[in-house]
C-alpha cells in the first residue's frame, strides 16, 4: 500500500514539475512579448517578423527598395530544383515530408520523439537524404540553404507554432537549455544574447541598430549584402558568438538547435516570411 502511495505521489510530482516547466515556457513567451511592447509601444506585434526593420525606420526604406528585386530569388529557384531532384531510388525530398508544402517550414524546429532531441528543417533534410542513401549536405553550404529558402518561401504567411510537448521532459530540457544559452554571458566581451537583443535593443553598435529577438527566426535564411550570399540562422548565431569573441559552436550543434527551439517558441504567433534580405 505504501509503495502504491509513493508511486502515485512520484507520478503526481513529475506531472506537476512538467506542467510548471511548460507553464514556464508560455510565461516566458508572454513576458518576452510584453517587454518589447513596453519598449516599443507603437510597433504592432506582427511587425517583429520583419526583424530589425520593425524598429529601424531609416533602414526600413532601403530594405523595402531591395525587396522590389529580391536578391534571394535565385536561391528560391535553385532550392525548388533541388527539392524536386529525383534520387537514384526514384524518390524526392518531398517523399519524406507528409505535410503540405506550405506547412513544412513551420513544422520545425520540433522535438523528434525517436531521437529525443530538437530537429531543425536542415537536419530533417539531411535525415531524408540519409534515408534515401544520399550523402548529407554540408550545413551552411548553398545547396541546403537554397532548399530551406524554397521551403520558407512556400511557408510565407504561416504562423510560427512551436510546441514543447508537455508529456516529454526531453522537450522541456531542450527548451531550458536554449533559454539558458540565450541568457548566458560568454566570450571576451562577456555578453549574453539578451544583453544586446533585450537590454540594448534598438541601440547602435557602430552604424547598426540591435534587433529585437522577438521574430529573430521568422525570416531565415537571409541574403546578406555584406557577404553577397545566403546565410542560415545557425550561421548568424555563429557570427554573433564570434562577435562577442567566444568560440562558435558547429552549425546544427545541440547548442544552436536548442537556441533555435527557444527563440522560435518566443516568436510563436508571428508570420514566417523568409527568405529575407539583410545588410
Amino acid at each position: 500500500m505504501r509503495k502504491a502511495i509513493a508511486a502515485v505521489v512520484l507520478i503526481g510530482a513529475t506531472l506537476l514539475m512538467q506542467q510548471t516547466a511548460l507553464a514556464g515556457a508560455e510565461e516566458d513567451r508572454l513576458a518576452f512579448v510584453k517587454y518589447y511592447k513596453t519598449r516599443f509601444p507603437d510597433i504592432p506585434f506582427a511587425e517583429y517578423a520583419n526583424g530589425i526593420y520593425a524598429i529601424d525606420s531609416d533602414a526600413r526604406g532601403q530594405w523595402l527598395e531591395i525587396e522590389e528585386f529580391p536578391p534571394y530569388e535565385f536561391a528560391i529557384e535553385k532550392g525548388q530544383e533541388r527539392w524536386e531532384t529525383v534520387f537514384a531510388n526514384g524518390k524526392t525530398l518531398a517523399d519524406c515530408f507528409p505535410q503540405a508544402l506550405q506547412e513544412i517550414r513551420v513544422s520545425y524546429p520540433r522535438l523528434d520523439e525517436r531521437l529525443g532531441e530538437v530537429v531543425t528543417l536542415e537536419m530533417a533534410i539531411n535525415q531524408c537524404r540519409a534515408a534515401n542513401q544520399q550523402p548529407p549536405l554540408t550545413y551552411g553550404d548553398d545547396e541546403i540553404i537554397d532548399i530551406t529558402a524554397f521551403l520558407a518561401f512556400q511557408g510565407r504567411g504561416k504562423k510560427l507554432d512551436v510546441r514543447v510537448p508537455e508529456n516529454d521532459p526531453r522537450a522541456l530540457d531542450a527548451y531550458e537549455s536554449g533559454k539558458r544559452f540565450y541568457y548566458t554571458k560568454r566570450g571576451q566581451l562577456n555578453l549574453a544574447c539578451a544583453d544586446c537583443h533585450v537590454t540594448s535593443v534598438g541601440q547602435l553598435v557602430r552604424a547598426d541598430r540591435l534587433s529585437a529577438s522577438l521574430g529573430h527566426t521568422t525570416h531565415f535564411p537571409v541574403y546578406r549584402s555584406k557577404f553577397g550570399g545566403m546565410i542560415s540562422l545557425h550561421k548568424r548565431f555563429a557570427g554573433c558568438v564570434r562577435d562577442v569573441r567566444a568560440k562558435p559552436f558547429a552549425l546544427q550543434s545541440t547548442e544552436f538547435r536548442n537556441l533555435e527551439y527557444f527563440l522560435s517558441y518566443m516568436g510563436n504567433g508571428l508570420d514566417v516570411n523568409g527568405p529575407g534580405a539583410r545588410k
Partner: peptide
C-alpha cells in the same frame, strides 16, 4: 589567462544567467 577566465565566467554564469530572464 583566457582559459582560466573563461572557466571562471562559466562557473559564475551557472547561476547568474537566470537573473537575466525577462519577467
Amino acid at each position: 589567462f583566457q582559459a582560466e577566465t573563461a572557466i571562471k565566467q562559466a562557473q559564475h554564469e551557472a547561476d547568474a544567467w537566470s537573473g537575466r530572464v525577462v519577467q
